[in-house]
Amino acid sequence: MYMYLPIALTSVNYLLVIALGLTVGLLSGLFGVGGGFLMTPLLMMIGIPPTIAAGTDANQIVAASSSGMFTHWRLGNVDYKMGIYLLIGGFLGGAVGVQVIKFLSATGGADFLIKMTYVVMLGLVGSFMFVESLVAILRKKTESHHHSAAASGAKKGGLMATLPMQIHFDKSGVTFSALVPFALGIFVGVLAAIMGVGGGFLMVPVMIYMLRMPMHVVVGTSLFQILFTCIEVTYLQAYYNHTVDFPLAILLLIGSVFGAQIGAILGRKLHGDQLKILLSIIVLGVTVKMVLELVTQPAILLSHVGGH
């Protein structure tokens, strides 16, 4: 029942870890998010040091996102052109975010920035998705909501049409400047680096609401971007910080790859708005938990050095 983790220097119940991987993998397949914003705190709860939790999580997301992306690729749901622009921006933003954290760590303000970024971003994204999805579901009962969505999309397109480097993204069926996904990639990359996660839960809403991409292409493209981001993070964490616990990653990925597939199958049975409202509830739940942690005095005021 137990497995010793040579990098984390602790022992865990492997069935519990596989179950964690399954749950987070399910979210990955269902919503196209990496699940880092959930997995890292869950691993810390079972006694994994924060830095190891974050580093190893990136490794297991490589498996979960490659599994999910493979399925979406076969179904033609990956917009590679869009994914590459987002990825380039994400890599650049990630590098900037790492430097920001390095600077703030030296001045002692990193923890405050990380916590506040989490609460504000999760709160905003979760609330916006929840309200938008709820309105869409309610509206659908009386009239077709496609009309309003199309009108909103057209408005966005009008503003973006003034920018240079206009490109048509065939798979997503949208046309706008290449600078838009590039800039959004940088924005998400900076936040992802500050928050220590892959950024899927930020990228998905950005693709849905700002880029107006269809939901099925959003999930596949998000997984494509997450896969490459986490490959980079895994290597860097293993090489520079020794924070990738391979046996722990194996346990997590056993659960997550199956969870991702189950999530993808379940996703077929749910409408886009239902998926969005589910994801928004999870994101808001995590936000509430973080706010409670911030305002409630912890039982033990000491913790290991490293991590958030």
């Binding site: 297991q60 498996a63 996102s65 599994s67 399925t71 290597y235 990653a249 790859v257």
Partner: peptide, 29 residues
């Protein structure tokens, strides 16, 4: 360290794609 990082990535990719292949019938939304 370099080999360790690469092995971790390759194993994750192989397992991910292998399981993705097993679930060929599984689709997305």
């Amino acid at each position: 360290r370099g080999t360790y990082g690469l092995i971790a990535i390759v194993v994750a990719l192989v397992v991910g794609f292998a399981v993705g292949n097993i679930f060929k019938g599984g689709g997305a939304h």
